[in-house]
Nucleic acid binder design. Sequence first.
DNA 1: GCGATCAGAT
DNA 2: CACATCTGATCGC
Length: 709
Amino acid sequence: MSRFGGRTREYPAVSIDRFDHDNVRARAFFLSHCHKDHMKGLRATALKRRLEGSLKVKLYCSPVTKELLLTNWKYKFWENHIVALEVETPTQISLEDETSGEKEDVVVTLLPAGHCPGSVMFLFEGENGTVLYTGDFRLAKGEAARMELLHSGTRIKDIQSVYLDTTFCDPKFYHIPSREECLNGILELVRSWTSLSRNHVVWLNCKAAYGYEYLFINLSEELGIQVHMNKLDMFRNMPEILCHVTTDRHTQIHACRHPRDEDCFRGNRLPCGMTCHNGTPLHIISIKPSTMWFGERKKKTSVIVRTGERTYRACFSFHSSYSEIKDFLSYISPVNVYPNVLPLGATEDKVMEILKPLCRSYRRNMEPRYKPLGTLKRAHKRELSDTDEDDLFDSELISTRPKIPKQQRGESRPSSTGQSENAEGNINEGTESYKGTTAYTSLKVDFVDCEESNDDDNDDEDDEEESEKNTVQFHSHEPDATYTANFNGVTSDQQESNANVPCWDEFFTGNKLEESSENEDNVPSSADAGGSQSLFSDSDGVSDSTHISSQNSSQSTHISEQGSQGWDSQMDTVLITSQERSALDMSKGGSRAVVPVLQETPTDTQLDSGRGKPPGQNRPCAHYGACALKSKGCEKAAEAGAAHVQDVLVEISDSSRTPDLELRRDSQSSSDFEIPLTPDAEAPQPDKLHHLYKKLAAGENIINEKKVS
DNA sequence: GCGATCAGAT
DNA sequence: CACATCTGATCGC
């Protein structure tokens, strides 16, 4: 939840995402997206009065946000005071104090934030420097490098301050599977269930908020089943969304809500009241999108975890992961950074320890190598905490990093962050490089690391099983680099969108990797339950084994007891990665579904289906000019992913379940962690050693370092 | 009676 | 585990 006060140090005449208290006096208002925690004061009488007494004060937002806002009658009074700005279109705004006549000009640019429909970041450029307010965002690694307007020529702009979404700025969320991975997991689960019979329906237990639309769209496109929602008038001018949702309850996918929806579900009733179809009772499963829940697992999990007979958790995030945040910030390399959010249980200091090393103000201070002890100590701590940073090498701060040409967008991105930086000299962090290695290696590893957790969920009746809480580590590769998340639909390719109509783009494409099983309500046999779904995990299973370990060697596997049966009996959450699952499935003979899918994956059918446009092409949408951003990159990533799955299958096969394999996998996973491993857990890698040597040379305390993280 | 705020639930 | 929202209780105006 945002705790940003509404003003930036540099441009206090504007208020962003906060409209209460002193903010009502701002000369201009900005709304990054339509979530309530960013709309505080937006319908208060103080602000209404302010509007009444002014002809000039405006609220600036994206076209989609304007549309969503005005759909709510409570905000209708804004109608004549809202100015929708096209995304990626720098606009000069004159900030005038109506009483004194004092004026100040600022150029604002909206950049897609990938958080929810209409969400944007605001880039302000004016006399007081360039400032980026991110609002809430989820951008994959490398996205910043692909944003033209963050650059000036081939270089990143000189950004004074970034007001950053730090929701998941905690190593616990080091890696969160990409949108594609999460989407695919859900897709295959929904596909497997709904294909059993017309009476098999899925309830997507989504929170009442914008942000799940791309999920609905993709499920609908892929499966040809519209998603039931309580209401959809807010999308009346967004045909791309509208055609995938419905108020007709006779559909197999529901995202409807009811005040007592969990109870409804427990009573085998959908929130909309549906309980049977053609006289036959419905077979309902629930899928609850979650991020934090996965973040608490300590063992690897797949993006889907079965938490009960009829309940599943699906990994899903509206916010960037820890590593995505760091990638973003280190690329921007602002002078200052201010966290907009305090992660659960974190303190501002802690977050700053993570962020500062990625900022110039901090790097500069670090420059002198030989400093008084006090300073050195501080430096140490920061480093430790996170990432990286070989500050020692640092030289220039202003990033000379080249912007990634659009042409290259489809390429895998690892290099942009890791390599280019390294090449340059150093913005990179020692840790980064270390991390980078891991990441690349794990590029193909498509799983989520997780360890089990306690079962907390009381709500899902069935969650009983997970028992411990561990830290989660999500990892996997990052195919996302290939697509641009863009809820606004205005992309570089598509600048001419209609100014009057909001644009919406699906913002990503999913790649499918595997198929799921066909179990019925009952707990699947071991093979089925987890097995068939490469993307699934059961919450019960096994698990003890894992720990995060160090190197990533090959694929990891963590399959636990497949054979385990009821949810109730086991305490642990099973965590399996998609590949692992696939492997498992295959080894077991695989469910019928699995095999075919795997085979198809490489083909267009699966990869593109639905969204299916040829790579790189936009699908012009009637009024919006919105297009699906399915990029080639996605396709490639998908293929790579698929190929990988196959590899894994070959490689792992039956043995995947053996204990030692599990151990291996664990060890691998830990390498992605930023958290220092226990000394014996892993041998220092060359770059790490290098880093340590430098510290020693500078008289810094190495021991502290390790502790911090 | 409305709004702001907090606790609680989902 | 909780990403955001809504409800109800309380308090102040």
